[in-house]
Computed example of a mutant assay.
Amino acid sequence: MAARQFDLIAFDWDGTLFDSTAIITRSIQEAVRDVGGTVPSDVAASYVIGMALMPALAHAAPDVPVSKHAELGERYRHHYIAHQHDIVLFDGVLPMLAELKARQHSLTVATGKSRRGLDEALHAVELQGVFDGSRTADETQGKPHPRMLHELMREFGVAPERTLMVGDTTHDLQMALNAGCASVGVGYGAHPTDAFDALQPRFIAHSVAELRDWLRQHG
């Protein structure tokens, strides 16, 4: 196994570790329908995954007035909560994380979810203790602003050149670029990979198995 290149690895959650893209997309569409907006396409709804919730919903439903944004957020949460226990980790995620822990990487989560949402997800899949730290969109700046990564690097005392961001959206990769960090894109989540190259990822993994193999050799 190759020598470790990164001390800190930050993972996006939805669409990277957690197989939630379809449920989030449907929940956005149903929420917009509930408040009388123009229902976004699958592509438009999935594009905003990874952003903080209200900016994401506003982007996906530009014709919904600001006066209805609170209701829009409530309807999204209603639909998501109804299906959140249907969501599972992608196959292979747990052994990949265990292998990285064994190599003494600091493992963190940088997500557009809320703190409550992430904590519930971590509890549901019994991942307590796997991650050394995390940042959520409601406690810092949302992606692609680099603040999440800046805060995690400061917390763990790790320089940008020793930090890797792994995510499934252009928001994740742009955040890494903005923070001066390396990134790996995954092609099994919310965004098509044709937009990834401009954001300079070290690698694009099309499965968890490919991601695990790359991290084994280059992480």
Rank of each mutant, 00 (worst) to 15 (best):
96 M>F: 13
116 R>L: 11
116 R>S: 06
98 A>G: 12
109 V>D: 01
94 L>N: 03
83 H>E: 14
92 G>E: 08
107 L>G: 10
75 R>I: 05
110 A>W: 00
85 H>W: 07
96 M>I: 06
99 E>D: 15
76 Y>P: 05
105 H>C: 10
95 P>C: 10
103 R>T: 13
80 Y>E: 03
107 L>S: 11
79 H>Q: 06
96 M>L: 15
116 R>V: 06
80 Y>T: 01
83 H>I: 00
105 H>L: 09
98 A>K: 14
74 E>R: 11
85 H>C: 04
87 I>K: 01
100 L>G: 05
114 S>E: 01
116 R>W: 02
116 R>A: 08
107 L>C: 12
73 G>W: 02
115 R>L: 09
102 A>R: 15
89 L>K: 08
87 I>N: 07
72 L>S: 07
105 H>V: 09
78 H>C: 00
117 G>S: 04
114 S>L: 01
90 F>I: 12
95 P>V: 10
99 E>I: 02
90 F>Q: 09
74 E>H: 06
95 P>H: 08
114 S>R: 04
103 R>W: 11
91 D>S: 15
99 E>N: 13
78 H>E: 12
103 R>E: 15
98 A>D: 14
82 A>R: 13
78 H>I: 00
79 H>V: 04
86 D>I: 05
81 I>M: 04
77 R>F: 01
77 R>V: 10
73 G>P: 01
76 Y>M: 09
75 R>G: 05
87 I>W: 05
102 A>D: 14
104 Q>W: 03
111 T>W: 02
88 V>T: 14
90 F>N: 09
97 L>P: 11
91 D>F: 04
96 M>R: 12
113 K>A: 04
114 S>G: 07
94 L>E: 13
81 I>K: 05
72 L>I: 11
112 G>P: 02
85 H>A: 10
88 V>C: 09
78 H>A: 04
99 E>V: 02
91 D>K: 14
72 L>H: 08
80 Y>F: 14
109 V>Q: 00
88 V>K: 14
84 Q>C: 12
113 K>L: 06
101 K>Q: 15
86 D>C: 07
90 F>A: 09
88 V>D: 14
98 A>Q: 15
106 S>D: 11
86 D>L: 13
108 T>W: 01
99 E>A: 15
81 I>C: 00
112 G>M: 03
82 A>Y: 04
92 G>R: 11
83 H>K: 12
74 E>V: 03
115 R>W: 00
81 I>T: 09
111 T>Y: 03
81 I>Y: 06
116 R>P: 01
111 T>D: 04
95 P>G: 09
83 H>P: 00
96 M>Q: 12
91 D>Y: 09
76 Y>N: 06
83 H>C: 09
86 D>G: 03
74 E>I: 01
81 I>L: 08
95 P>N: 09
80 Y>D: 01
81 I>W: 00
99 E>F: 07
111 T>K: 02
89 L>N: 08
113 K>R: 12
94 L>P: 07
92 G>P: 11
115 R>Y: 02
117 G>M: 00
89 L>R: 11
107 L>F: 12
107 L>V: 10
91 D>V: 12
74 E>W: 02
95 P>L: 10
88 V>M: 12
85 H>D: 15
86 D>K: 11
96 M>H: 13
75 R>P: 05
